[in-house]
């Protein structure tokens, strides 16, 4: 096949032209709709663009980045982004895996779990955020607050106090997306080969050994994929936090995403907002690079 792979002519030239014609519209649109705006974003991060003070607009060099380096609110946002992403992804995978292992063992009614699990996934994050902000977490009238008081615990001002607000947005995100991890891992568990377990049972491996030495390594590819997808989504999470706390109180739940948004659209400082967004872009690229490297890295005994 590859012998005829010459530039220009050959019997495959027509195929290449056809393939090119099929991909070009999509890739051209992709370039115009994503790459061009991104270049524009990078350009504007080197500008002063302030819709409130347009007379100051002009080339700013690296001013925005210098400002960012000395901006405590920026470093605070980075820290929150890290906490928010790692905590929620770890919780999703651990709870999702635990649930999947439990549900695999129940003799009937797995479909109920599948149906229920699909619901949070298909809901709009902004609506989920609004639900939690009002009927779930409101002081006194919210269900969570009521249950906590009914059980005899102290009332918590979930969205109004700094640390509870951060915990709340992590809970909301985890509530909505754990079903994703659960469904993917449940499907992977169901497709695992049975004979390995038979062998293990004959070798008298106990439940924990079976989980640690067989299930976990076999699930590794699926877990890694879930971690990659969920990390990317968590890094750019916006709507649920925006709806539940707006990043507040103060900046208590203001992850980098919200800081860049507010700087641009509330303070109308688009130059600095662009620089913040570029920093998020760089962080996303680095994190995805690391995760993809971990995924392709060789691990003995996990060939699937």
């Amino acid at each position: 096949m590859s012998s005829s792979r010459r530039k220009g002519g050959g019997i495959h030239a027509g195929e290449r032209r056809f393939a090119f014609a099929l991909t070009m519209p999509g890739l051209l649109v992709l370039f115009l709709t994503t790459t061009f705006p991104l270049l524009y974003l990078i350009w504007s991060s080197f500008q002063t663009i302030n819709l409130a003070m347009p007379f100051l607009d002009g080339f700013a060099g690296v001013d925005n980045y210098v400002q960012m380096w000395g901006d405590a609110r920026f470093w605070h946002a980075i820290r929150l982004t890290g906490i928010y992403t790692t905590t929620s992804v770890v919780l999703q995978v651990v709870i999702g895996l635990g649930l999947a292992l439990l549900v695999m063992q129940i003799p009937a009614g797995q479909w109920v779990f599948r149906i229920v699990a699909i619901l949070p996934i298909v809901l709009a994050p902004v609506v989920v955020g609004l639900f939690w902000r009002t009927v779930m977490l409101s002081p006194n009238f919210g269900l969570v607050d009521y249950l906590i008081q009914a059980l005899g615990f102290e009332q918590v001002n979930w969205l109004g106090a700094p640390t509870p607000a951060l915990i709340s947005v992590i809970i909301i995100h985890t509530w909505q997306w754990t079903p994703f991890a659960f469904l993917v891992l449940l499907a992977s568990l169901a497709s695992l080969p049975v004979d390995v377990y038979e062998a293990a049972r004959i070798d008298r491996a106990n439940a924990f050994q079976r989980f640690w030495h067989i299930t976990l390594p076999l699930l590794r590819p699926a877990i890694v994929i879930v971690v990659i997808i969920r990390s990317m989504i968590a890094l750019s999470a916006f709507a649920a936090i925006f709806a539940a706390t707006g990043g507040g109180p103060g900046t208590a739940s203001e992850i980098l995403n919200l800081y860049a948004f507010k700087t641009s659209f509330i303070e109308l400082n688009f130059g600095y907002g662009s620089a913040l967004a570029v920093s998020l872009l760089v962080i996303t690229m680095v994190v995805s690079g690391v995760l993809f490297y971990l995924r392709t890295a060789r691990h003995p005994g996990t060939k699937t």
Binding site: R5, L30, T35, P37, L38, A260, A277, V278
Partner: peptide, 26 residues
């Protein structure tokens, strides 16, 4: 057979990871 299939595929995958806030501003 698509010329530059791998880089173009990687490009498509990469565009998927752009954080939306980086697009809403421009």
């Amino acid at each position: 057979r698509l010329p530059a299939k791998r880089p173009l595929g990687f490009y498509t995958l990469a565009t998927q990871m752009v954080p939306p806030v980086g697009l809403v501003i421009p």
